[in-house]
Structure formats: structure tokens, C-alpha cells
Design a protein around this nucleic acid. Structure first.
Lengths: 200, 200
DNA sequence: GTTTTTTGTCAACGGCTGTTGACTTCTACC
DNA sequence: GGTAGAAGTCAACAGCCGTTGACAAAAAAC
């Protein structure tokens, strides 16, 4: 009854979040990318994403519409294989291997997000289409004959398999930096495919 | 009111399931393996597994205790790389490639189940430990020096990456049988690692 | 100074999840 | 024939999920 002047704002000392729509949007996107990449689509909850961004799940919906739309926005970013596809073909294997064995495992990269979409009935198709369009096709075009698409697919498989066991199914055998024996083997294998592997 | 003699069994024409505990148990296990392999741990529900086995979810719990224990039982089966690790080293690459490009994609194999455990907080550790103990270690022992563990890891990465894009993230570039260019390239790559790939 | 729009919170909804306990029904043993 | 126990069904629990609409407050527009 004896309510004094302001029933609103019962909160104690929490400073109200600064109202910056653009930054809030990017914070949501970053939190979503991290959680999609580490836990997968099904295991990354809207409440968890919202909490990581410092806001309320309802606000995530208002910014992105739905969880699926948030996922689509989270993968609208390049995978980053493009920078390696330059004119220097002799060392591209080592450069790619060095890159994937140097980048921090906990980073929110698009490849991890896409690999985690495996089997998810809602987003699996999106992931495969994006991989085909943004990785396989440019890679095959850059490789050229013979068997351009097969060699591009094999490169993607080697990279994905290695990264999977570094990031999502972390195995001891795949740990370590770019100076390990595995990184060296991987570089040699990638280069072997780029150069055009012989018939079996 | 005028209920006649038997209030039980209101079911119409459904024949009561034959009471065979051993077969029921194996049917549950098979259904679980199929669904874990195709949809992943989080997306394979207990009701779905039970329905696929033709029973009730409560019975699944009575047989296996919990979903996690069911998963543990589902991966207690060999991955099947063992048969290739014989004395014939010259053609093992082609044999493995032929095997993975011939086996039906929809089959419930342990490798698919384990790959789908990526990021699942409940079962990720189990999957990595099992892969290390049942694949990496025997493979490294069979390969021998130099860099046995690195080469074993690379073989697992190539196989897993390829199978991932055939089964869980089905891409057009990975479709097709054992006579495709990709299968041939993969065989050559595997053999190259088995023979001991050169330094990068 | 008032109104409108944007930015954010809150409580709740229906639906799905794994799991539980009480209950039937069939089978095998004495 | 009677009974103990195995095999299976059923309904319900608590908890989490994505999503919604009503509301509060800050900022902007008039």
C-alpha cells in the first residue's frame, strides 16, 4: 500500500544496458556464433545465447525472428579459404595446414558451425548448400583439371576431418600447434592433392 | 455400464507383441544405432527410438537405464577398421576407400554415431576416448614409424571427413559409388599416408 | 512539454524431453 | 490350478525449449 513514488525499477544496482541497437545486434550474433560452433545447433539454446549476449531471449527473437533465422545470419560470413587460393601453388598446403593448426580452437569460425549442423533436420540443408557454393566450387575452379571437383572435395574432407578432431571431438592426437608431426603430414597431404594426386 | 466380461484389452486388431526379451533388447539397440547415426544424440528422442523398435519409451528405460547408457551400449561395437590392417600394405588404401564408398549410407555404423557426438556435452568424451582407444592406437601400432600416431590421425581425419560428407552432411560432390574419381583420389591419398608421406 | 518510436524486460504459453511408478498381461514353475 | 515373476503398457511428472504479447523506460520527434 505505502508504495513510494516509483513501483518500477526495483532492481538494485544493475546499470541499465546502454541502448545501442547495432552493438546489441552484433553481440547477439557473436554469442550465437560461439555457441553454435561449440555446442551445435540443437544444444545451443536461445536462453543461453541471450545470456551470453547479456540480454533477454525475447530480444533475440525481435532482432532475428527465429532461431533458424539466427543460424542463417550466423553463417553469412566467409569460411576464409579464399585468401589461400592465390597464384602461389607450391606452398598452399603448408599455408592451409599452418592456418588451421594456429587458429585458436575456441574461436567462433564458420566451418565449426557448419560441421555441427550435421544431422540437424532444420539446418543441415543450408550447411551443405553453403559449403558447396562457397568452398567446393571456388576450390575446384582454382584447382583446375584433372578431376577438379574430386580433388576439391578431398581437400575439404581432409581439412574438415582434422578440424573436427581439434575442435568438436577434441582428441589428444590432434592437439598441438603448427610445428607438430601431424601438421607437417597434413601439409604434405594437402599439397599432394593440390599438385594433382596420381591415380590409385 | 454394460461392460461385457473383459474391460481389459480394448485394443482392436493389434496382435500383442511376442514376449522375447532378447530380441526386444536387440531391436531397441538397432533402432537406437540407426537414429543416433542419422539424427545425432540430441535429435534422437527416446519416444522415436521406442517407436522404431515397436515398443514404449518406458521399456527402453527398463532395458538400458537411461538415454546415456543406451548410447554407451550403442557404441559398444567395433568400428571395423581392423579387417584392413593385415599384412598386405600395398593395397590397403584402395580397400578402405572401396569399403567406405560401397557401404550403404543409411546403415547404422559406429563411426557415424561417434561423429554425431561432436559437441554433445553428455557423450562427447565417450566418443573421443573410444576413437582413441579403438582406432588411433591400433592403427598407429600397425603403421609403425615414422610418425605413427600422426599418420594414424591423418588417416582417421581423411576417412571421417569423407564419411561425414557422405552420411551426415550429404553433399553432391561426395555422392556416388566406389568407381568415382573421388573414391580413386581418396584411395591414393590413404595409400600415400600408409606408405609414409614425405616431409612437407 | 507532450507524444511517438525504439530498446529492453517480464511472465507465460504450448509443446517436447527423459524418466518414473502404478498398472496389466502373458509365461513358467510348483 | 494357483501363483510368482517377467514383459509390456499407460498416464503423468518435472524441466527445458522456442516463441509470444503485454508492459516499462529511454530517446527522439514534434
Amino acid at each position: 500500500m505505502a508504495q513510494r513514488k516509483s513501483p518500477t525499477r526495483p532492481r538494485s544496482a544493475a546499470p541499465p544496458r546502454p541502448r545501442d541497437a547495432e552493438q546489441t545486434r552484433s553481440e547477439i550474433l557473436h554469442a550465437a556464433r560461439v555457441l553454435f560452433a561449440t555446442r551445435g545447433y540443437a544444444n545451443a539454446g536461445m536462453r543461453e545465447i541471450a545470456a551470453a549476449a547479456g540480454i533477454t531471449p525475447a530480444l533475440v527473437v525481435r532482432y532475428f525472428g527465429s532461431k533458424r533465422d539466427l543460424f542463417i545470419a550466423a553463417i553469412e560470413s566467409d569460411i576464409g579459404l579464399g585468401p589461400f587460393l592465390g597464384p602461389d601453388r607450391a606452398t598452399v598446403g603448408r599455408h592451409i595446414a599452418r592456418y588451421f593448426f594456429s587458429k585458436p580452437v575456441r574461436e567462433a569460425d564458420t566451418l565449426s558451425i557448419l560441421l555441427h549442423a550435421a544431422g540437424e533436420p532444420e539446418v543441415c540443408d543450408l550447411a551443405t548448400e553453403l559449403l558447396a557454393a562457397r568452398v567446393i566450387q571456388p576450390l575446384a575452379r582454382w584447382l583446375g583439371p584433372p578431376r577438379a571437383e574430386a580433388r576439391a572435395a578431398l581437400l575439404l574432407a581432409i581439412i574438415s576431418g582434422t578440424w573436427l578432431f581439434r575442435q568438436a571431438l577434441p582428441m589428444r592426437a590432434f592437439a598441438g600447434g603448427p610445428d607438430t608431426a601431424l601438421a607437417s603430414c597434413m601439409a604434405a597431404q594437402l599439397q599432394h592433392v593440390v599438385d594433382g594426386s596420381p591415380e590409385a
